[in-house]
Amino acid sequence: MAGHSRTARAGDRSLVVKRVAPAATRNAGPVAEVLELELPVEGTVLEIASGTGEHAVFMARRFPRLVWQPTDLDGDNLASIAAWRDEADVPNLAPPIVLDAAASVWPIRQADAVFCCNMVHISPWAATEGLFAGAARLLAKGQPLCLYGPFLEAGVETAPSNLAFDRSLKERDPRWGLRHLSQLDALAQLKGFVPSARHAMPANNIMRIYRRTLAP
């Protein structure tokens, strides 16, 4: 569970919680190395379920020619993202916006890439369906949807820690749990995407890249 500290928002006397997720700090570098291979040089990256906001700050600094647009549905997360953004003062990091991945309408009409880290296993399947549908509405042909997290794969032995994590998620909410990559690939095809890359990541995670096959 993420820890937190309290910090003052710029221009606001009230205090808000600036949350900290140790895993975000650990994986930010390896994630950025893969994104450097997959993201466009310029444009807007829409981050779905930005969480604490630490990734957003790190990536905006790492990719100064990209506008990084963080989003979340949770109010505490949105406050944390705003607090990190205020402290970092990175010009290409946009203010966070409320976005429900499962919604049929998103508050943004265009992006050049979509990035989603550690959401699909900690949300109902409808959120993943909405993620692909929303990305299909935004992305042009060839543009990437980048998914990071733990997944189940045919022919690949699942780490015991991931199996335990899967059980704990389903105990918390039976709609949650690690998704099979074949299930995601099938959904991607239905929504007009094709899997283009698989990158092995630390701590038994992977980065799966999907590319839009049709114009929206």
Results as ranks from 00 to 15, higher is better:
Leu139Ala: 11
Ala126Lys: 12
Ile97His: 07
Gly142Ala: 10
Trp68Ser: 00
His121Pro: 03
Pro70Thr: 08
Gln143Asn: 15
Phe165Ser: 02
Pro107Asp: 11
Gly43Arg: 11
Ala79Leu: 08
Ala83Glu: 02
Leu73Phe: 12
Ala82Ile: 13
Glu42Arg: 13
Tyr148Met: 03
Trp176Gln: 04
Ala49Phe: 05
Ala82Thr: 08
Lys170Leu: 06
Pro174Cys: 09
Gln183Phe: 13
Asp185Trp: 10
Asp166Met: 09
Ser50Gly: 08
Ala140His: 14
Phe132Gln: 06
Val105Ala: 15
Ala113Ser: 11
Ala79Trp: 04
Ala159Met: 04
Ala113Asp: 03
Gln69Val: 12
Ala94Ser: 14
Gly51Thr: 10
Val120Ser: 01
Ala136Met: 06
Leu147Cys: 07
Pro70Asn: 06
Gln110Glu: 14
Lys141Gln: 14
Gln69Ala: 12
Ala60Cys: 07
Leu131Asn: 00
Val98Asp: 13
Thr158Pro: 09
Trp125Ile: 08
Asn118Phe: 12
Ala101Gly: 02
Phe132Lys: 11
Trp176Tyr: 12
Gly43Phe: 10
Leu46Gln: 01
Ser50His: 00
Leu178Pro: 02
Thr71Arg: 04
Ala126Ile: 06
Ala79Gln: 11
Glu157Cys: 11
Asn92Gln: 11
Cys146Gln: 03
Glu129Trp: 10
Ser123Asn: 07
Ser182Thr: 15
His180Asp: 15
Leu145Pro: 00
Glu87Ala: 13
Arg109Gly: 15
Tyr148Cys: 03
Gln143Arg: 15
Val67Asp: 09
Met59Thr: 09
Glu153Val: 13
Ala83Thr: 00
Ala56Pro: 09
Ala111Glu: 02
Phe165Asn: 06
